[in-house]
Amino acid sequence: MDKQKVTAFAPATVANVSCGFDILGFAIEDLGDKVSVALSDKPGVRVVKIEGDNGKLPYESEKNTCSVAVKAMVEDLGFEGGLEIELYKGLPLGSGMGSSAASAVAALVATNTLLGNPYEKKDLLPFGIESERIACGAGHADNISPSLLGGFVLIREYQPLDVIPLHVPRGLYCTLIHPHLELNTSDSRSVLRRNVTLQDATTQSGNIAGLVAGLFQEDMALISRSLNDVIAEPSRSILIPGYDEVKVGIVPAGALGCGISGSGPTLFVLSPTEEIAWEVSRLSQQVFDKLQLPIDLYVSAINTRGAYIVEEEI
């Protein structure tokens, strides 16, 4: 008997990873969104239920990232039946943890399974990118790709799309620090410089190459030296209270480096061990306690699984 409803989970992500603006990202364990997609007798793609968003997300199919991604997929497939989408948000909105991407990816993976897996997992990427245009005005893939595929990914080129999985070093951990602020991606992109100097472009290129090499060589010192962004973070960091204090404060603990997760306000810190990642968590809490700003803290290994099916109903 054919499946009637499928539920999928897609993880949170860290995009940019300091120097890799719009081209690097990695996935987080356990934190993410769930989406259920069911067959319907009524043609078309509809969002019928949203939980966990405090009433902020749209139900209109042309505005919700889940339905935008699914519509792009079924149009490409030529499917003319009906689909109903239920979204269960586990990620805060405007957090810089790939919230819109996780929703879209979970919807795509659920729909693909529901319809008999007409696409390979990686072939769902273009449909997810279309949903990101709705969310933030730019069709970037540095959240969509790691949420779907897991691990570290490099987006070498967008036209045509060329996504490359990278090596994940043993022992690498991430601490996420989410201040209770909402920072829209479109606003965060608006503060960026439109032109960069040749010197900054050269420095950034060296750091990207160094970070990729450090991942493959499992060279923690090289990863640490390369976690430096001279293009986006200097402009964006002024929007995030506690950024400078955390960046300085985590160095004595042995952390590799700190940066802005996506467009913020969440900060990420990479550490060579789980023990150091938890110490980073403690030190970060102290910083924000002094600022009297509530935060959420997460410590996670790098998620190499990506999105997956939670449940199938007949």
Rank of each mutant, 00 (worst) to 15 (best):
A209N: 13
H180I: 02
R236F: 05
L183F: 08
E182V: 08
I238H: 14
V246C: 08
V230T: 09
A213P: 00
K247D: 08
G259Y: 09
T266D: 10
E233T: 03
L176Q: 01
S271P: 02
V230Y: 09
F216Y: 12
L181M: 13
Y173D: 09
V212D: 05
M220S: 08
D200F: 02
T266M: 11
E245N: 00
D244S: 14
N195C: 07
N184E: 15
F216R: 12
I231D: 05
P272L: 01
V248M: 03
L215H: 04
S261D: 06
V196R: 01
G214L: 06
C258G: 07
R193L: 13
R194W: 09
E182F: 01
S237V: 00
G254D: 09
Q217D: 11
R193S: 15
A213I: 05
E182L: 03
L211V: 04
Y173A: 11
S237E: 14
V196I: 14
K247F: 03
L222T: 10
Y243T: 05
I260Q: 03
D244R: 14
Y173R: 06
I260R: 05
G214N: 09
S190A: 14
A213D: 12
I250S: 05
L267S: 07
A221Y: 07
V251I: 15
L256T: 03
D219A: 12
S263V: 06
L183Q: 12
V191T: 04
H178M: 10
Q199P: 00
M220K: 10
S224N: 01
R225D: 14
A255P: 09
D219E: 13
I208L: 12
P241R: 13
Q199N: 08
P179H: 10
D219P: 11
